[in-house]
């Protein structure tokens, strides 16, 4: 999937990726896509929950080896 920005969360455990995503998403424009790359398995349930709470759209989760990529589309403010 093509993303506008990427956030590296490799080696970071819950809840830090969520905190970083929440900060990073502010830099994006509405409709832009943020790619989050992490290796903490918690991210697979945490990001969907965060999206539900904040209204941003979860586009998909990809897993290759130990690496997890999550795509989030920014919702209007």
């Amino acid at each position: 999937m093509k993303a506008d920005q990427t956030l590296d969360c490799i080696g970071l455990y819950c809840p830090i990726p969520i905190v970083k995503i929440a900060t990073k998403i502010k830099d994006l424009k509405t409709g832009e896509i943020l790619e989050v790359v992490g290796d903490d398995k918690g991210i697979k349930l945490d990001v969907p929950a965060w999206c539900q709470a904040t209204g941003h759209e979860l586009l998909g989760i990809e897993e290759q080896g130990g690496e997890i990529k999550v795509y989030v589309k920014k919702a209007p403010n």
Binding site: I18, A22, T23, W50, T54
Partner: peptide, 12 residues
């Protein structure tokens, strides 16, 4: 504190 910062990240 983990829950507090997560809550803040979730717009709470």
């Amino acid at each position: 504190f983990m829950l507090a910062v997560t809550g803040a990240s979730m717009d709470m």
